[in-house]
């Protein structure tokens, strides 16, 4: 990823800032600039997601690219946000802890590091939302 692209995406990566169509109420994360439902009648505004959601489905990754090798095995999941959008994300928990429907919440983590002298990319991952 280029430094410029990462920088542009900071609001969505750090703070889950997506968009909302005020016409139909749909929330888009990652953000969309056009509502696919309302099209020209849609009114798109910025919208910050709550970071709460649940695991829709998941897989346990036992092999990973060099960058993520130290983390394996890890849980990669599709999380449905309470606003309705779906995101593919790492869920930080033991592989035997995760289940379909598990409530999760967002946390701030390092997504990757460009070697030892490049940019550190921060962003959002998810953890079990337990009291």
């Amino acid at each position: 990823m280029t430094v410029a692209r990462f920088w542009r995406e900071i609001p969505q990566r750090y703070n889950m800032v997506g968009t909302k169509c005020e016409t139909c109420g749909r929330v888009f994360f990652p953000p969309r600039s056009v509502c696919p439902h309302c099209r020209r009648n849609g009114k798109i505004v910025e919208y910050k997601c709550s970071g709460k959601g649940k695991v829709l489905t998941f897989s346990i990754l036992n092999s990973a690219s060099e960058q993520y090798a130290e983390m394996k095995p890890y849980v990669l999941a599709i999380v449905e946000l309470e606003e309705g959008s779906r995101v593919t994300t790492q869920v930080i928990c033991e592989p035997d802890e995760v289940f379909i429907g598990m409530p999760v919440k967002s946390v701030f983590r390092v997504l990757d590091r460009e070697g030892s002298d490049g940019i550190i990319h921060y962003g959002t991952k998810f953890v079990p939302d337990v009291v």
């Binding site: 983390m71 946390v107 701030f108 390092v110 997504l111 550190i120 921060y122 991952k125």
Partner: peptide, 12 residues
């Protein structure tokens, strides 16, 4: 954890 550092602690 692997993906934690001073910045992630500070933010959380």
């Amino acid at each position: 954890d692997y993906d934690e550092n001073t910045a992630t602690f500070a933010v959380e």
